[in-house]
Write a protein that binds this DNA or RNA. Structure first.
Length: 1017
RNA sequence: GGGCCCGUGGCUCAGCCUGGUUAGAGCGCUCGCCUGAUAAGCGAGAGGUCCGGGGUUCGAACCCCCGCGGGCCCA
């Protein structure tokens, strides 16, 4: 016997042990197969996986298992993204560090060692978590971004970029984290709402008394670096005469914005005195508002320029600080302005900032506002809540700073990248054609340098003396001791001799970690250090990641790959969603709505978890719901019970698969459904539509197989040994179970393997593991569309009959004389003919009849509500006329007036006595609800049988055990059904008299009946 | 301001690409049933302006346009 209840824990522990003891994964992997190059998007080694990571790997595992069963030998190397700020930040926290200086004094070598140990430990912890989700990947041989052979792949890429003129060092305004003291890529900036000052500042126009240009900013701290003001050339500007406390000022700003801006200041009145276009303003000079506080500003000329990026918002005059804004910078370069940046790496003003030197920019805001106020240059001050960028790791608000950085010139590669996107198969299609293309179209040059420690060192050496630059494209060009020793600070000690006689030293930067993972498609197979695999496999056949990777891994990979090979590194991309909480919010620690994968697994098991996440469309976000998750488990339990049912009898009879017996209609039907299901699964998998397989599985196995097929064949399995009909049922059930399990095995590997070992291999020879079996392909010859359609109709009829019984209050246990199907459909007629036996037994009726028109009587009554107001006093006469009607007239003419019969008449159908009806899609079903004596006796017999069965159960008798039964009742009530009762209940003897043994008193339809049973030992 | 996705009973979602019976499922609810899969299982019923408005079409949840609401990303 199989366990009565599905216990995920027992199944899991047994199968995990079985796999391990027998090295099943290794054996499966050794099998030959067609190539399928899958590249694992490396999760960052944070130490714990979350729901989304778990979903991601389960999705990958399912596809890999499917591919293996389908004759492929997919690559399944897991990857780990191990460098970068997140780990540095963690280690810094552990050590209590606050700045880079803490690291330097601690020692970079020791710091790097800590980072490495931390990353390795996290990797191990996460590996265990993934293994516990039954993810089969090559865990003993992962690719790691910290390995020399991997770092080499990044060096190779940067050398290619250099050779193609796509590597550039330039001063550029970048996202800067002053806590981490490094540049950040756009992909590393997270946006959320932040409250900032919103100030309107008056810049005094040179040589014109009391005249000002009005600008607006949310970053007062950038004012010390102001170098210019920008206006839009074709926007209309105004000089406004404004009066405050009797004092007159002239303010220059966009005309259409004047009222709203002046309204914010304390002006008593204002009027436009002059207007001009933006282009007329060019060259207008002004004095820096903080020239006294920042004396260096006195050295430079400040004037108005025009620029197209200016919009009619705020004041229409934009404060330009080329050292602190991307557009500002570009304008600055164009106009030959000083790229003035008085802020250091830590976000602290340098000496150049005069009065503010030594202050942190975030703290300086208030002081600057005060100074402006004191100088009467502050027109208005407000607060604003707006989206502002933050460092993705330490959450510090970023600032923009002009610094020297290394860039990949994406701007020159964009067209090629966009072309490559079109060649990739995207699932869903819009992931590529819309979302990704949009990102790439707007991409700027990629800043790949970081002023940090824990990363792949940028392999650029520069001569101290002559500035000559050398880009190293292979680790073989330098000495390295072991594969983990290419990190800082060791690499910093490597120098080259320059032609000029000087020493070449490495630039101190490390790579953006997105560059690390960007080279995964060849780094993971150690190219170019080793060539064979690359030549055989590249590019990847398939990758899958979440939609956040649009600007992450999908992008970084495409960029590096186009640089190196002019080609996309992947052929197909499945973009999956995010896991959200039940309300559709992001899961986050601060909201306290985080659900851990382990928590889910402990409640519903690994297979339950996997099926749950694979149940909905992968590209949709997944709102996690406990209710839904448990629901999956209930369905799995039905699967369990269905297989257990089949097993019980097949096992009892020692069935061996092969014998087919005589297939009946229901057998042929479910076998047809099985092949339709297999077909659907294959088609869906080819499109990576995993959810369709899971849904089809539950539909088929729970709905069709368990709830319908097994229901129908139940009596057949307790026929005598060797009955051809019973053998046919066994054959059918086995085939269904065997093939269904193999279809669903990639999704629910543990329970499938368990059944394979305990059930499938009990009745036929098999492989050592279900994962050495092949994935079923549909045998289309067995699909019988007509039969499937007929069964749908039969189901509808049975359902309607149940409905009618409900109305007539006749339980299913009570047999009924007749079922009439009224229909005009030939298909229904054929279906009834074909499947009569099934309908009869499922409806528990003796006879079924199909008619075009059931002999019912109609009663026609006038609709007084309608005719009353129309016919007034003639209504009574009309009623008489209606009473004479025998059938519904097509035309209704009364007293020369034509009436619409549909409105004027109410039709009542009266069924002949004793009938009840219910509708079904193709007609109406009628049952005859009265029971004659003969039917009553059968009904009683069934009632008695049911109660004896329950008593057997209470005594915990074996299914096969015989008993003696005594019933205290009038034997006439079940006359003619004695043998039936005996055989159904395995009673050797049935007597009507004093009950002995285990005795119970029952109330059967109002009659007291005492039943006694004695077990036959 | 721009791009993308989503909006279907109380809840979670299929269906939409490829227009065509009376729009489905599960959960929940109400009422029943079954009892040799049984601390399970099954059925029926109630419950839907398929976000709104236009358009195309003989016909629109589905295709097109314009809105509204939510989410993500970008400015």
């Amino acid at each position: 016997m199989l366990p009565a209840k599905y216990s995920p824990k027992n199944v899991e522990s047994e199968i995990f042990k079985f796999w391990e003891d027998n090295e099943i994964y290794r054996k499966v992997k050794e099998r030959k197969g067609r190539k399928f190059y899958f590249v694992d998007g490396p999760p960052y080694t944070t130490g714990r996986i979350h729901l989304g990571t778990a979903w991601n790997k389960v999705l990958k595992d399912t596809i890999l298992r499917y591919k293996r069963m389908s004759g492929f030998a997919p690559t399944d190397t897991p990857g780990w993204d191990m460098h970068g700020l997140p780990i540095e930040v963690k280690v810094e926290q552990e050590l209590g560090f606050r700045t880079k200086r803490d690291i330097e004094s601690f020692g970079i070598d020791k710091f790097i060692e800590k980072c490495m140990n931390y990353a390795l430990a996290n990797k191990d912890a996460m590996t265990e978590q993934f293994k516990n989700l039954a993810v089969w990947m090559d865990w003993d041989r992962p690719y790691m971004t910290i390995k020399a052979e991997y770092m080499n792949a990044a060096w190779f890429a940067i050398k290619r970029a250099y050779e193609r003129g796509l590597l550039e060092r330039k001063k550029m305004v970048v996202n800067w984290c002053y806590r981490c003291e490094t540049a950040l890529a756009d992909a590393e900036v997270e946006y959320w709402d932040e409250e900032d000052p919103s100030i309107y500042v008056k810049f005094p126009v040179k040589g014109e008394r009391d005249t000002y240009i009005v600008i607006w900013t949310t970053t007062p701290w950038t004012l010390p670096a102001n170098m210019a003001v920008a206006v839009h050339p074709s926007l209309e500007y105004a000089k406004v005469r404004a009066v405050k406390n009797g004092k007159v000022e002239y303010l220059i700003l966009a005309k259409e914005l004047a009222d709203s801006v002046l309204g914010k200041g304390d002006y008593d009145a204002w009027e436009v005195v002059e207007t001009y276009l933006g282009e007329d303003l060019e060259g207008l000079e002004y004095e820096h508002p903080l020239a006294e506080e920042v004396p260096i500003q006195k050295n430079w000329k400040h004037q108005v320029f025009f620029a197209d990026f200016v919009t009619a918002e705020n004041t229409g005059c934009v404060h330009i600080a080329p050292g602190h804004g991307v557009e500002d910078y570009e304008l600055g370069v164009e106009k030959g302005l000083e790229i003035f940046n008085p802020v250091d790496d830590r976000g602290v003003y340098t000496e150049k900032a005069g009065k503010y030197a030594g202050k942190h920019v975030r703290e300086a805001n208030d002081e600057i506002i005060d100074d402006l106020y004191r100088k009467d240059l502050l027109l208005a001050e407000e607060k604003i809540v707006h989206r502002y960028g933050h460092c993705w790791r330490c959450k510090t608000p970023i600032i923009y700073r002009a610094t020297e950085q290394w860039f990949i010139k994406i701007s020159e590669l964009k067209d090629e990248m966009l072309r490559e996107i079109d060649k990739v198969k995207w699932i869903p299609e819009w992931a590529g054609s819309a979302r990704f293309k949009d990102w790439v179209s707007n991409a700027k040059d990629w800043c790949i340098s970081r002023q940090r420690y824990w990363g792949i060192p940028i392999p650029v050496w520069i001569c101290e003396k002559c500035g000559e630059m050398k880009v190293v494209g292979s680790i073989e060009e330098i000495d390295w001791e072991n594969d983990l020793d290419l990190h800082r600070p060791k690499i910093d000690a490597v120098t080259f001799d320059c032609k000029c006689g000087g020493k070449m030293r490495r630039v101190p930067d490390v790579f953006d970690v997105w560059f690390d993972s960007g080279v995964a498609s060849w780094g993971s197979i150690a190219y170019p250090l080793r060539k064979e695999k690359f030549e055989e496999l590249w590019p990847a056949d398939f990758i899958t990641e979440g939609h956040d990777q649009t600007r992450g891994w999908f992008y970084s990979q495409l960029g590096t790959s186009v640089v190196c090979f002019d080609k996309a590194p992947y052929k197909a991309v499945l973009m999956h969603g995010f896991t959200l909480d039940e309300q559709g919010r992001k899961m986050s620690k601060s909201l306290g709505n985080v659900v851990e994968p382990e928590e889910v697994v402990s409640q519903i098991g690994v297979d339950g978890f996997r099926l749950y996440v694979l149940y909905s469309a992968p590209w949709e976000d997944l709102r996690f719901s406990w209710e839904e998750a448990r629901n999956i488990n209930r369905m799995l339990n039905v699967v369990w019970n269905a297989i257990r049912f089949a097993y019980t009898y097949m096992n009892l009879d020692d069935y061996k698969f092969g014998e087919k017996g005589e297939l009946k209609m229901e057998d042929r039907w479910i076998l047809s459904k099985l092949e339709s299901f297999v077909k659907e699964a294959n088609e869906a998998m080819e499109e990576y539509q995993v959810h369709r397989v899971v849904r089809a599985f539950f539909d088929f196995f729970v709905e069709e197989f368990s709830r319908w097929y097994i229901q129908i064949i139940r009596p057949r399995v307790w026929e005598e040994r060797d009955s051809p009909s019973k053998i046919a049922a066994y054959y059918t059930m086995f085939r269904v179970i065997d093939r269904s399990l193999r279809v669903i095995a990639p999704f629910a590997p543990l329970i499938s393997e368990w059944f394979y070992q305990h059930v499938v291999k009990r009745f036929r020879d098999g492989e050592e593991s279900i994962f050495m079996e092949s994935y079923p392909e549909p045998e289309e010859g067995m699909i019988d569309g007509k039969l499937e359609e007929a069964m749908d109709i039969a189901k509808d009829i049975v359902e309607a009959a149940a409905n009618a019984r409900n109305k007539a209050k006749r339980k299913l246990r009570w047999p009924l004389r007749e079922l009439v199907v009224e229909t005009s459909s030939e298909k229904v007629r054929e279906a009834v003919e074909m499947l009569e036996e099934i309908i009869l037994s499922q409806c528990n009726v003796k006879k079924i009849r199909v008619v075009d028109n059931f002999e019912k009587e109609i009663e026609i009554k006038p609709n007084y509500k309608y005719i009353g107001p129309l016919l007034k006093e003639k209504a009574g006469e009309f009623a008489k006329y209606v009473a004479s009607l025998k059938e519904i007239p097509e035309k209704l003419v009364f007293e020369g007036e034509e009436l619409d019969p549909k409105q004027a008449l109410l039709i009542d159908y009266r069924l002949p006595d004793g009938y009840e009806y219910a509708e079904f899609p193709e007609g109406v079903v009628y049952i005859y609800k009265e029971l004659d004596d003969e039917l009553m006796r059968e009904a009683y017999a069934r009632e008695i049988v049911r109660r004896i069965q329950e008593m057997r159960k209470e005594l915990d008798l074996d299914v096969e055990e015989f008993i003696q039964t005594m019933v205290e009742m009038d034997p006439e009530l079940v006359k003619g059904w004695e043998e039936y009762i005996k055989s159904e209940t395995r009673s050797e003897k049935l007597t009507f008299g004093k009950a002995e043994g285990y005795v119970k008193e029952w109330n059967v339809e109002g009659k007291k009946v005492r039943i006694g049973i004695v077990r036959k030992s």
